[in-house]
């Protein structure tokens, strides 16, 4: 009965509902975007009412929030943080810089398209996106989770070679531990 398809479906629905309503965010404040997180969390916009709250370490987090541009130097740390997170995990790209480089489109030391290096589930557009936009982004992520479509981590595992190739092109001295998830 436990291996029954319908039972599994029911379990998935309940699990996705719980995951949807309990999103612990690890805000990786790389760029200027970090300044939009405090108003999102505090009394004016109060993200906690949606179940969104901060997590202190990657081990406890569900969502990696990349707030702004990533320099070639911080990319390594972000990858390491992402790989330490426990499944199921999601990535939100925050601001124009993560989509196409934004105002850093011709910079020599920032990466332009985050999706080449980490699997992004939801992008939040804007420079800067206001807290309303951030909440809308979380709402979109909740929809995806409920529908079971937020499977960035799965894609990352399936296409690990492609991601590694891109990452190693940016990071020449690749000294990283292997994680077996």
């Amino acid at each position: 009965m436990i291996n029954d398809k319908n039972t599994q479906k029911l379990v998935d629905v309940i699990q996705n509902w719980a995951r949807k309503h309990s999103i612990w965010v690890l805000a990786y404040g790389t760029g200027c975007g970090a300044i939009e997180i405090p108003p999102t969390m505090t009394s004016r916009y109060d993200a906690e009412r949606l179940g969104v709250r901060g997590a202190a370490t990657p081990r406890q987090a569900d969502v990696l929030l990349i707030t702004g541009y990533l320099t070639t130097k911080t990319l390594k740390r972000v990858i390491r943080v992402y790989e330490q997170m426990q499944d199921p995990k999601y990535v939100i790209g925050f601001g124009s810089c993560t989509i196409n480089g934004g105002m850093y489109y011709d910079s020599y030391n920032t990466i332009k398209v985050l999706d080449k290096y980490l699997p992004v589930d939801v992008y939040i557009n804007g420079c800067m996106p206001r807290p309303e936009a951030v909440l809308a982004g979380f709402g979109k992520l909740q929809e995806l989770i409920a529908a079971g479509k937020a499977d960035g981590a799965k894609k990352y595992k399936e296409n690990l070679d492609w991601y590694r190739e891109n990452q190693k092109r940016i990071i020449p001295n690749w000294v990283m531990p292997d994680y077996n998830w």
């Binding site: 699990q15 309503h21 109060d46 009412r49 179940g51 709250r53 499944d87 199921p88």
Partner: peptide
């Protein structure tokens, strides 16, 4: 603030339990 619902801790606990 409005705050999470009173049963938020149960949701968090279940989610944590279902994580790998």
């Amino acid at each position: 603030r409005k705050g999470p619902p009173w049963y938020q801790n149960f949701i968090d606990a279940y989610k944590l339990y279902s994580k790998s």
